[in-house]
Design a protein around this nucleic acid. Structure first.
Length: 402
RNA sequence: GCGUCGGUACUCAAGUGGUCAACGAGGGGAGACUGUAAAUCUCCUGACCUUGGUCUUCGAAGGUUCGAAUCCUUCCCGGCGCACCA
Protein backbone atom coordinates (compact mmCIF):
# COMPACT_ATOMS: atom_id res chain seq x y z
CA UNK A 1 0.00 0.00 0.00
CA UNK A 2 1.26 3.42 -0.79
CA UNK A 3 -0.07 6.65 0.45
CA UNK A 4 0.30 9.67 -1.66
CA UNK A 5 -1.64 12.80 -1.98
CA UNK A 6 -4.48 11.78 -4.25
CA UNK A 7 -5.30 14.25 -6.95
CA UNK A 8 -8.78 15.55 -7.24
CA UNK A 9 -11.27 13.06 -8.59
CA UNK A 10 -13.43 14.47 -11.33
CA UNK A 11 -17.08 13.56 -10.89
CA UNK A 12 -18.44 15.45 -13.84
CA UNK A 13 -21.48 13.49 -15.01
CA UNK A 14 -20.97 14.09 -18.66
CA UNK A 15 -17.40 12.92 -18.51
CA UNK A 16 -18.39 9.81 -16.63
CA UNK A 17 -21.08 9.11 -19.17
CA UNK A 18 -18.62 9.56 -21.97
CA UNK A 19 -16.15 7.30 -20.23
CA UNK A 20 -18.70 4.56 -19.92
CA UNK A 21 -20.13 4.71 -23.40
CA UNK A 22 -17.73 5.94 -26.02
CA UNK A 23 -16.18 3.00 -27.84
CA UNK A 24 -17.51 0.70 -25.17
CA UNK A 25 -19.00 -2.62 -26.17
CA UNK A 26 -20.14 -3.83 -22.77
CA UNK A 27 -19.65 -3.21 -19.07
CA UNK A 28 -19.93 -5.59 -16.13
CA UNK A 29 -21.66 -6.00 -13.78
CA UNK A 30 -23.61 -3.01 -15.11
CA UNK A 31 -23.28 0.63 -15.88
CA UNK A 32 -25.05 1.90 -12.79
CA UNK A 33 -22.59 0.11 -10.52
CA UNK A 34 -19.57 1.87 -11.98
CA UNK A 35 -21.40 5.13 -12.35
CA UNK A 36 -22.27 5.35 -8.71
CA UNK A 37 -18.70 4.63 -7.65
CA UNK A 38 -17.37 7.26 -9.96
CA UNK A 39 -19.93 9.84 -8.98
CA UNK A 40 -19.12 9.41 -5.33
CA UNK A 41 -15.64 10.57 -6.09
CA UNK A 42 -14.01 7.38 -4.91
CA UNK A 43 -10.45 6.99 -6.00
CA UNK A 44 -10.43 3.91 -8.16
CA UNK A 45 -7.80 1.77 -9.78
CA UNK A 46 -8.16 0.46 -13.29
CA UNK A 47 -5.77 -1.64 -15.27
CA UNK A 48 -5.12 -2.85 -18.74
CA UNK A 49 -3.11 -5.96 -19.41
CA UNK A 50 -1.17 -6.37 -22.62
CA UNK A 51 0.88 -9.37 -23.61
CA UNK A 52 4.17 -8.44 -25.23
CA UNK A 53 3.71 -10.80 -28.13
CA UNK A 54 4.88 -8.49 -30.88
CA UNK A 55 7.69 -5.99 -31.22
CA UNK A 56 5.33 -3.07 -31.17
CA UNK A 57 1.95 -1.91 -30.04
CA UNK A 58 -0.56 -1.37 -32.79
CA UNK A 59 -3.63 0.67 -33.34
CA UNK A 60 -5.88 -1.97 -31.85
CA UNK A 61 -4.13 -1.51 -28.53
CA UNK A 62 -4.83 2.16 -28.76
CA UNK A 63 -8.50 1.75 -28.00
CA UNK A 64 -8.18 0.42 -24.44
CA UNK A 65 -5.04 2.45 -23.83
CA UNK A 66 -6.92 5.63 -24.53
CA UNK A 67 -9.75 4.54 -22.31
CA UNK A 68 -7.20 4.00 -19.59
CA UNK A 69 -5.81 7.42 -20.21
CA UNK A 70 -9.28 8.90 -19.97
CA UNK A 71 -9.64 7.35 -16.54
CA UNK A 72 -6.31 8.75 -15.46
CA UNK A 73 -7.36 12.20 -16.53
CA UNK A 74 -10.38 11.90 -14.29
CA UNK A 75 -7.95 11.56 -11.43
CA UNK A 76 -7.97 7.84 -10.86
CA UNK A 77 -5.10 5.44 -10.52
CA UNK A 78 -4.26 3.41 -13.60
CA UNK A 79 -1.98 0.46 -14.09
CA UNK A 80 -0.38 -0.66 -17.31
CA UNK A 81 0.22 -4.34 -16.84
CA UNK A 82 2.63 -6.19 -19.06
CA UNK A 83 1.82 -9.85 -19.38
CA UNK A 84 5.43 -10.89 -19.53
CA UNK A 85 4.68 -14.15 -17.78
CA UNK A 86 1.54 -14.99 -19.69
CA UNK A 87 3.25 -14.26 -22.98
CA UNK A 88 5.74 -17.00 -22.31
CA UNK A 89 2.87 -19.45 -21.92
CA UNK A 90 0.76 -18.74 -24.97
CA UNK A 91 -2.87 -17.72 -25.14
CA UNK A 92 -5.32 -20.11 -26.69
CA UNK A 93 -6.05 -19.15 -30.22
CA UNK A 94 -9.08 -19.84 -32.38
CA UNK A 95 -7.48 -22.79 -34.03
CA UNK A 96 -4.48 -23.82 -32.02
CA UNK A 97 -2.08 -23.07 -29.25
CA UNK A 98 -0.23 -19.87 -29.80
CA UNK A 99 3.47 -20.40 -29.89
CA UNK A 100 4.95 -19.45 -26.56
CA UNK A 101 7.56 -16.73 -26.63
CA UNK A 102 10.96 -17.00 -25.15
CA UNK A 103 12.08 -14.76 -22.33
CA UNK A 104 14.38 -12.87 -24.69
CA UNK A 105 11.67 -12.22 -27.22
CA UNK A 106 9.43 -10.90 -24.50
CA UNK A 107 12.06 -8.56 -23.18
CA UNK A 108 12.90 -7.17 -26.57
CA UNK A 109 9.23 -6.70 -27.41
CA UNK A 110 8.77 -4.90 -24.17
CA UNK A 111 11.30 -2.21 -24.83
CA UNK A 112 9.11 -0.20 -27.12
CA UNK A 113 5.91 -0.67 -25.24
CA UNK A 114 6.43 1.82 -22.50
CA UNK A 115 7.77 4.37 -24.89
CA UNK A 116 4.81 3.99 -27.19
CA UNK A 117 2.30 3.89 -24.38
CA UNK A 118 3.72 7.05 -22.86
CA UNK A 119 2.41 9.02 -25.79
CA UNK A 120 -1.02 8.47 -24.31
CA UNK A 121 -0.48 7.64 -20.69
CA UNK A 122 1.29 9.76 -18.14
CA UNK A 123 3.97 7.77 -16.38
CA UNK A 124 5.21 10.76 -14.43
CA UNK A 125 3.80 13.30 -12.05
CA UNK A 126 1.51 13.17 -9.06
CA UNK A 127 -0.94 10.68 -10.48
CA UNK A 128 1.46 8.66 -12.54
CA UNK A 129 0.45 5.41 -14.13
CA UNK A 130 2.01 2.30 -12.72
CA UNK A 131 3.91 -0.04 -14.97
CA UNK A 132 3.76 -3.59 -13.70
CA UNK A 133 4.67 -7.10 -14.81
CA UNK A 134 2.62 -10.14 -14.03
CA UNK A 135 5.70 -12.27 -13.57
CA UNK A 136 6.00 -10.41 -10.25
CA UNK A 137 3.42 -12.75 -8.79
CA UNK A 138 2.79 -15.50 -11.32
CA UNK A 139 6.37 -16.71 -11.40
CA UNK A 140 6.32 -17.11 -7.64
CA UNK A 141 3.33 -19.39 -7.38
CA UNK A 142 3.93 -23.04 -6.62
CA UNK A 143 1.85 -25.98 -7.69
CA UNK A 144 -0.32 -25.83 -4.61
CA UNK A 145 -1.14 -22.19 -5.25
CA UNK A 146 -2.06 -23.07 -8.78
CA UNK A 147 -4.29 -25.92 -7.69
CA UNK A 148 -6.06 -23.73 -5.18
CA UNK A 149 -6.70 -21.27 -7.92
CA UNK A 150 -7.83 -23.92 -10.38
CA UNK A 151 -10.29 -25.23 -7.82
CA UNK A 152 -12.22 -22.00 -8.15
CA UNK A 153 -13.34 -22.67 -11.70
CA UNK A 154 -15.01 -25.58 -13.36
CA UNK A 155 -14.33 -27.23 -16.65
CA UNK A 156 -17.82 -26.33 -17.79
CA UNK A 157 -17.13 -22.68 -17.17
CA UNK A 158 -14.03 -22.95 -19.31
CA UNK A 159 -15.83 -24.75 -22.08
CA UNK A 160 -18.21 -21.85 -22.41
CA UNK A 161 -15.44 -20.05 -24.12
CA UNK A 162 -16.19 -19.92 -27.80
CA UNK A 163 -12.82 -20.94 -29.08
CA UNK A 164 -12.84 -24.08 -27.00
CA UNK A 165 -16.26 -25.03 -28.28
CA UNK A 166 -15.05 -24.46 -31.76
CA UNK A 167 -12.01 -26.58 -31.31
CA UNK A 168 -13.98 -29.44 -29.90
CA UNK A 169 -16.28 -29.22 -32.87
CA UNK A 170 -13.28 -29.32 -35.18
CA UNK A 171 -11.68 -32.17 -33.27
CA UNK A 172 -8.66 -30.04 -32.54
CA UNK A 173 -6.62 -30.52 -29.39
CA UNK A 174 -7.09 -28.46 -26.26
CA UNK A 175 -4.25 -28.57 -23.81
CA UNK A 176 -4.73 -28.35 -20.09
CA UNK A 177 -2.47 -25.36 -19.76
CA UNK A 178 -4.77 -23.44 -22.03
CA UNK A 179 -7.35 -23.65 -19.32
CA UNK A 180 -4.85 -22.02 -17.03
CA UNK A 181 -4.59 -18.94 -19.15
CA UNK A 182 -7.82 -17.29 -18.00
CA UNK A 183 -6.87 -18.22 -14.46
CA UNK A 184 -3.49 -16.59 -14.72
CA UNK A 185 -4.86 -13.52 -16.33
CA UNK A 186 -7.66 -13.49 -13.84
CA UNK A 187 -5.23 -13.76 -10.98
CA UNK A 188 -3.64 -10.54 -12.14
CA UNK A 189 -6.78 -8.79 -10.94
CA UNK A 190 -6.40 -10.40 -7.56
CA UNK A 191 -2.71 -9.60 -7.22
CA UNK A 192 -3.22 -6.01 -8.27
CA UNK A 193 -6.32 -5.71 -6.10
CA UNK A 194 -7.93 -3.38 -8.57
CA UNK A 195 -11.40 -1.90 -8.84
CA UNK A 196 -11.71 -2.41 -12.54
CA UNK A 197 -10.22 -3.67 -15.74
CA UNK A 198 -10.44 -2.47 -19.30
CA UNK A 199 -9.61 -4.45 -22.42
CA UNK A 200 -10.72 -5.39 -25.87
CA UNK A 201 -13.97 -7.24 -26.27
CA UNK A 202 -11.99 -10.32 -27.24
CA UNK A 203 -10.65 -10.36 -23.71
CA UNK A 204 -14.06 -10.37 -22.06
CA UNK A 205 -13.89 -13.99 -21.02
CA UNK A 206 -10.54 -13.56 -19.34
CA UNK A 207 -11.55 -10.31 -17.72
CA UNK A 208 -14.67 -11.90 -16.33
CA UNK A 209 -12.62 -14.80 -15.02
CA UNK A 210 -10.67 -12.22 -13.07
CA UNK A 211 -13.87 -10.69 -11.82
CA UNK A 212 -14.96 -14.09 -10.62
CA UNK A 213 -11.71 -14.81 -8.85
CA UNK A 214 -11.55 -11.46 -7.17
CA UNK A 215 -15.05 -11.97 -5.86
CA UNK A 216 -14.24 -15.41 -4.52
CA UNK A 217 -10.86 -14.61 -3.05
CA UNK A 218 -11.29 -11.07 -1.80
CA UNK A 219 -15.02 -10.62 -1.99
CA UNK A 220 -14.54 -7.61 -4.18
CA UNK A 221 -16.71 -6.56 -7.11
CA UNK A 222 -14.40 -5.79 -9.98
CA UNK A 223 -15.94 -3.92 -12.87
CA UNK A 224 -15.04 -4.74 -16.41
CA UNK A 225 -15.10 -2.47 -19.41
CA UNK A 226 -14.97 -4.29 -22.71
CA UNK A 227 -14.04 -2.05 -25.59
CA UNK A 228 -15.30 -2.35 -29.12
CA UNK A 229 -12.83 -3.91 -31.46
CA UNK A 230 -11.60 -2.09 -34.47
CA UNK A 231 -13.04 -4.26 -37.19
CA UNK A 232 -13.49 -4.00 -40.88
CA UNK A 233 -16.98 -4.34 -42.34
CA UNK A 234 -16.71 -8.11 -42.55
CA UNK A 235 -16.20 -8.18 -38.83
CA UNK A 236 -12.60 -9.14 -39.08
CA UNK A 237 -10.37 -7.82 -36.41
CA UNK A 238 -7.63 -5.40 -37.27
CA UNK A 239 -4.56 -6.93 -35.79
CA UNK A 240 -1.19 -8.29 -36.48
CA UNK A 241 -2.46 -11.75 -37.19
CA UNK A 242 -4.74 -10.31 -39.86
CA UNK A 243 -2.10 -8.31 -41.61
CA UNK A 244 -4.04 -5.08 -41.79
CA UNK A 245 -2.70 -3.59 -38.62
CA UNK A 246 -1.23 -0.20 -38.18
CA UNK A 247 1.81 -0.46 -35.96
CA UNK A 248 2.69 2.41 -33.70
CA UNK A 249 6.33 2.29 -34.68
CA UNK A 250 5.60 3.14 -38.29
CA UNK A 251 6.50 6.43 -39.83
CA UNK A 252 3.70 9.01 -39.91
CA UNK A 253 3.62 8.66 -43.69
CA UNK A 254 3.17 4.91 -43.59
CA UNK A 255 0.54 5.18 -40.91
CA UNK A 256 -1.36 7.73 -42.93
CA UNK A 257 -1.23 5.48 -45.97
CA UNK A 258 -2.36 2.46 -44.02
CA UNK A 259 -5.39 4.26 -42.70
CA UNK A 260 -6.24 5.45 -46.19
CA UNK A 261 -6.29 1.86 -47.36
CA UNK A 262 -8.89 0.89 -44.81
CA UNK A 263 -12.24 0.14 -46.31
CA UNK A 264 -14.93 2.77 -46.20
CA UNK A 265 -16.97 0.87 -43.67
CA UNK A 266 -14.23 1.50 -41.15
CA UNK A 267 -14.62 5.26 -41.22
CA UNK A 268 -17.40 5.75 -38.70
CA UNK A 269 -16.33 3.07 -36.20
CA UNK A 270 -12.74 4.25 -36.35
CA UNK A 271 -13.75 7.85 -35.72
CA UNK A 272 -15.75 6.72 -32.75
CA UNK A 273 -13.25 4.51 -31.06
CA UNK A 274 -9.82 5.80 -31.93
CA UNK A 275 -10.20 9.54 -32.26
CA UNK A 276 -11.26 12.39 -30.02
CA UNK A 277 -13.69 14.04 -32.38
CA UNK A 278 -16.83 15.18 -30.62
CA UNK A 279 -20.13 13.37 -30.81
CA UNK A 280 -21.48 16.22 -32.91
CA UNK A 281 -18.68 15.86 -35.39
CA UNK A 282 -19.32 12.16 -35.47
CA UNK A 283 -22.96 12.77 -36.39
CA UNK A 284 -21.86 15.23 -38.99
CA UNK A 285 -19.56 12.64 -40.53
CA UNK A 286 -22.34 10.09 -40.68
CA UNK A 287 -24.59 12.58 -42.42
CA UNK A 288 -21.95 13.49 -44.93
CA UNK A 289 -21.38 9.87 -45.79
CA UNK A 290 -25.06 9.27 -46.31
CA UNK A 291 -25.29 12.54 -48.22
CA UNK A 292 -22.89 11.27 -50.82
CA UNK A 293 -19.71 13.07 -49.87
CA UNK A 294 -16.65 11.36 -51.26
CA UNK A 295 -15.58 9.04 -48.45
CA UNK A 296 -11.99 9.71 -49.38
CA UNK A 297 -12.21 13.19 -47.90
CA UNK A 298 -13.50 11.83 -44.63
CA UNK A 299 -10.86 9.19 -44.61
CA UNK A 300 -8.19 11.81 -45.02
CA UNK A 301 -9.64 13.53 -41.99
CA UNK A 302 -9.60 10.23 -40.15
CA UNK A 303 -6.01 9.53 -41.07
CA UNK A 304 -5.02 13.03 -40.02
CA UNK A 305 -6.72 12.61 -36.67
CA UNK A 306 -5.05 9.30 -35.99
CA UNK A 307 -1.59 10.42 -37.03
CA UNK A 308 -2.02 13.56 -34.95
CA UNK A 309 -2.83 11.47 -31.92
CA UNK A 310 0.28 9.39 -32.39
CA UNK A 311 2.78 11.94 -33.62
CA UNK A 312 1.34 15.42 -33.25
CA UNK A 313 -0.21 17.92 -35.56
CA UNK A 314 2.89 18.93 -37.44
CA UNK A 315 3.87 15.41 -38.39
CA UNK A 316 0.31 14.69 -39.35
CA UNK A 317 0.17 17.66 -41.65
CA UNK A 318 3.38 16.59 -43.32
CA UNK A 319 2.15 13.05 -43.74
CA UNK A 320 -1.03 14.29 -45.34
CA UNK A 321 0.91 16.49 -47.69
CA UNK A 322 3.20 13.64 -48.66
CA UNK A 323 0.26 11.38 -49.23
CA UNK A 324 -1.55 13.81 -51.47
CA UNK A 325 1.55 14.55 -53.42
CA UNK A 326 2.52 10.94 -53.90
CA UNK A 327 -0.74 9.26 -54.52
CA UNK A 328 -3.45 11.75 -55.30
CA UNK A 329 -1.28 13.67 -57.71
CA UNK A 330 0.91 10.78 -58.71
CA UNK A 331 4.11 12.58 -57.89
CA UNK A 332 7.23 11.21 -56.38
CA UNK A 333 7.54 10.99 -52.62
CA UNK A 334 10.16 13.23 -51.09
CA UNK A 335 12.41 10.86 -49.25
CA UNK A 336 13.38 7.97 -51.42
CA UNK A 337 16.46 5.85 -51.59
CA UNK A 338 19.07 6.98 -54.05
CA UNK A 339 21.45 4.45 -55.50
CA UNK A 340 23.93 4.55 -58.29
CA UNK A 341 23.00 2.65 -61.40
CA UNK A 342 25.27 1.17 -63.97
CA UNK A 343 24.42 -2.42 -63.31
CA UNK A 344 21.64 -4.81 -64.06
CA UNK A 345 18.26 -3.98 -62.59
CA UNK A 346 17.91 -7.33 -60.99
CA UNK A 347 21.11 -6.80 -58.99
CA UNK A 348 20.04 -3.36 -57.85
CA UNK A 349 16.71 -4.72 -56.70
CA UNK A 350 18.31 -7.46 -54.65
CA UNK A 351 21.00 -5.23 -53.16
CA UNK A 352 18.43 -2.68 -52.08
CA UNK A 353 16.17 -5.41 -50.65
CA UNK A 354 13.35 -4.13 -52.83
CA UNK A 355 12.39 -7.75 -53.38
CA UNK A 356 13.05 -10.98 -51.59
CA UNK A 357 14.28 -13.07 -54.47
CA UNK A 358 15.33 -12.72 -58.04
CA UNK A 359 12.36 -14.75 -59.06
CA UNK A 360 10.05 -12.29 -57.40
CA UNK A 361 11.65 -9.42 -59.27
CA UNK A 362 11.31 -11.25 -62.56
CA UNK A 363 7.67 -11.81 -61.87
CA UNK A 364 7.17 -8.15 -61.10
CA UNK A 365 8.85 -7.21 -64.34
CA UNK A 366 6.64 -9.60 -66.25
CA UNK A 367 3.61 -8.10 -64.55
CA UNK A 368 4.65 -4.65 -65.70
CA UNK A 369 5.15 -3.40 -62.17
CA UNK A 370 8.40 -1.51 -62.69
CA UNK A 371 8.30 1.78 -64.50
CA UNK A 372 10.01 5.14 -64.73
CA UNK A 373 7.91 7.82 -63.10
CA UNK A 374 8.19 10.71 -65.53
CA UNK A 375 8.16 8.88 -68.84
CA UNK A 376 6.01 5.99 -67.67
CA UNK A 377 8.30 3.68 -69.52
CA UNK A 378 8.26 0.14 -68.25
CA UNK A 379 11.25 -2.03 -67.59
CA UNK A 380 10.68 -5.23 -69.49
CA UNK A 381 13.92 -7.10 -68.98
CA UNK A 382 15.43 -7.61 -65.53
CA UNK A 383 18.90 -7.66 -67.01
CA UNK A 384 18.83 -4.20 -68.56
CA UNK A 385 21.19 -1.77 -66.93
CA UNK A 386 19.55 0.63 -64.53
CA UNK A 387 19.85 4.16 -65.85
CA UNK A 388 19.23 7.47 -64.15
CA UNK A 389 15.65 8.16 -63.26
CA UNK A 390 13.00 7.73 -60.62
CA UNK A 391 11.26 4.40 -60.67
CA UNK A 392 8.39 2.82 -58.91
CA UNK A 393 7.93 -0.84 -58.27
CA UNK A 394 4.31 -1.60 -57.69
CA UNK A 395 2.33 0.90 -55.71
CA UNK A 396 4.49 1.63 -52.77
CA UNK A 397 8.11 0.97 -53.58
CA UNK A 398 10.20 3.72 -55.09
CA UNK A 399 13.85 4.07 -55.96
CA UNK A 400 15.97 6.75 -57.54
CA UNK A 401 18.86 5.79 -59.72
CA UNK A 402 21.62 8.40 -59.92
C1' G B 1 -2.60 -50.35 -23.88
C1' C B 2 -5.78 -51.89 -28.26
C1' G B 3 -8.32 -50.19 -32.50
C1' U B 4 -9.13 -46.41 -35.94
C1' C B 5 -8.58 -41.85 -38.66
C1' G B 6 -5.20 -38.09 -39.51
C1' G B 7 -0.20 -34.70 -39.79
C1' U B 8 0.65 -31.42 -47.21
C1' A B 9 3.43 -24.72 -48.78
C1' C B 10 1.36 -18.20 -44.86
C1' U B 11 -3.81 -20.47 -43.47
C1' C B 12 -7.62 -23.88 -44.90
C1' A B 13 -7.67 -27.95 -48.01
C1' A B 14 -7.12 -31.63 -52.50
C1' G B 15 -3.83 -35.38 -54.15
C1' U B 16 -3.06 -41.82 -52.23
C1' G B 17 3.31 -44.99 -57.23
C1' G B 18 5.24 -41.48 -62.76
C1' U B 19 1.40 -36.32 -66.43
C1' C B 20 3.40 -33.07 -58.65
C1' A B 21 6.75 -27.43 -57.00
C1' A B 22 2.00 -30.41 -55.93
C1' C B 23 -5.93 -28.96 -57.64
C1' G B 24 -8.93 -25.38 -55.23
C1' A B 25 -10.15 -21.39 -51.63
C1' G B 26 -8.49 -17.51 -48.45
C1' G B 27 -4.48 -14.27 -47.64
C1' G B 28 -0.44 -11.58 -50.11
C1' G B 29 1.84 -9.13 -54.60
C1' A B 30 1.11 -6.92 -59.57
C1' G B 31 -1.76 -4.94 -63.94
C1' A B 32 -6.59 -2.61 -65.63
C1' C B 33 -10.42 0.51 -63.37
C1' U B 34 -10.08 4.00 -59.16
C1' G B 35 -10.36 7.54 -54.11
C1' U B 36 -3.25 3.61 -52.58
C1' A B 37 -11.23 2.37 -50.86
C1' A B 38 -14.74 -1.42 -52.03
C1' A B 39 -16.50 -4.32 -56.05
C1' U B 40 -15.00 -6.42 -60.73
C1' C B 41 -11.61 -8.58 -64.61
C1' U B 42 -6.50 -10.60 -65.58
C1' C B 43 -1.77 -12.48 -64.04
C1' C B 44 1.68 -14.11 -60.24
C1' U B 45 2.62 -16.41 -55.35
C1' G B 46 9.68 -22.35 -53.14
C1' A B 47 14.87 -21.02 -54.75
C1' C B 48 18.47 -20.62 -58.70
C1' C B 49 19.91 -20.33 -63.87
C1' U B 50 16.41 -20.00 -67.66
C1' U B 51 12.33 -21.28 -74.58
C1' G B 52 14.13 -25.72 -70.96
C1' G B 53 16.11 -27.29 -66.81
C1' U B 54 18.68 -27.85 -61.79
C1' C B 55 18.01 -28.04 -56.61
C1' U B 56 15.00 -27.99 -51.85
C1' U B 57 9.91 -29.21 -50.02
C1' C B 58 4.31 -32.92 -48.43
C1' G B 59 5.42 -34.81 -39.39
C1' A B 60 10.89 -37.49 -38.67
C1' A B 61 14.28 -41.24 -39.98
C1' G B 62 15.18 -45.46 -42.76
C1' G B 63 13.63 -48.94 -46.78
C1' U B 64 11.19 -50.96 -51.49
C1' U B 65 11.28 -49.08 -56.65
C1' C B 66 14.04 -47.08 -62.84
C1' G B 67 10.77 -43.58 -60.16
C1' A B 68 7.34 -41.95 -53.81
C1' A B 69 3.65 -36.62 -50.96
C1' U B 70 1.66 -41.41 -52.45
C1' C B 71 3.88 -48.42 -50.77
C1' C B 72 6.66 -50.81 -46.30
C1' U B 73 9.18 -50.34 -41.29
C1' U B 74 10.22 -47.69 -36.95
C1' C B 75 9.56 -43.30 -34.33
C1' C B 76 7.13 -38.45 -32.97
C1' C B 77 2.46 -35.61 -32.60
C1' G B 78 -2.98 -35.20 -32.61
C1' G B 79 -8.56 -36.59 -33.00
C1' C B 80 -12.16 -40.33 -32.02
C1' G B 81 -13.78 -45.17 -29.93
C1' C B 82 -12.83 -49.20 -26.57
C1' A B 83 -10.26 -51.05 -22.46
C1' C B 84 -7.78 -49.71 -17.89
C1' C B 85 -8.59 -46.48 -13.77
C1' A B 86 -5.07 -47.10 -6.83
Amino acid sequence: MFFQKKPHINTDEQKIEQFLTRGVEAVFPNKAFIQSKMKKGESLTLYLGIDPTGPTLHIGHLVPIRKLSEFQKLGHQIIFLVGDFTATIGDPDKTSVRKPLTRDEVLSNLKEYKKQASRFIDFTGANKALFRFNSEWLSKMNFKDVLDLAALMTVDQMLKRDMFKKRIAEEKPIHIHEFMYPLMQGYDSVALDVDGEVGGNDQTFNMLAGRDLLKQIKNKEKFVIAMKLLTDPTGKKMGKSEGNMVALNQTPEDMFGKVMSWSDGMIVPAFEIVTDVSIDTLQDIKHKLVGGENPKNLKIKLASEIVTLCFGEKESEQARHAFEQTFSKGEVPEDIEEVSGGKAWIDVAIEQSLVESKGEFRRLIEGGAVSEMTTGEKITDPNTVAVTGVYKIGKRRFIKII
